[in-house]
């Protein structure tokens, strides 16, 4: 027996699928809300990018101003260091220490570390 061929007209475009009550209205509201949120996010992002750009420009400007106004003197660092030591060292003990050689300084340091009576009165 020959099977009867299926006729698409029997079903047409009908589907068994359903949606919850008021789904499309709710969906539209949600979509519009999400879109508004996306727009806000975009706006905040643009503001952040703008703010970062302004900050970067300000930093570059500050750097340029600082370097352009800095004193243009050249100094021998060792010389500068000596001046500082001389400026800070005014008391006689300090002047005495300055006169000592490295070897004498080491001996003095050892002596002070090992002498238990050194700070006894203090």
């Amino acid at each position: 027996m020959m099977e009867k061929e299926f006729d698409f007209g029997q079903v047409g475009k009908r589907m068994p699928y359903r949606t919850p009550e008021g789904f499309f209205e709710r969906m539209q509201e949600e979509a519009l809300q999400r879109v508004a949120a996306e727009k806000r996010k975009k706006k905040i992002y643009r503001l952040k990018v703008g703010f970062a750009a302004v900050l970067s420009a300000a930093a570059v400007l500050c750097g340029a101003v600082f370097f352009l106004n800095a004193p243009q003197t050249e100094q021998d660092p060792f010389q500068a260091g000596n001046l500082m030591v001389e400026a800070e060292c005014n008391d006689p003990f300090c002047l005495y220490l300055q006169q000592l050689s490295d070897e004498d300084l080491n001996s003095l340091a050892d002596f002070m570390e090992n002498d238990i009576f050194m700070y006894a009165d203090q």
Partner: peptide, 8 residues
């Protein structure tokens, strides 16, 4: 959300 009444 599927209507099973219509088998076809």
């Amino acid at each position: 959300y599927v209507d099973y009444d219509n088998a076809m």
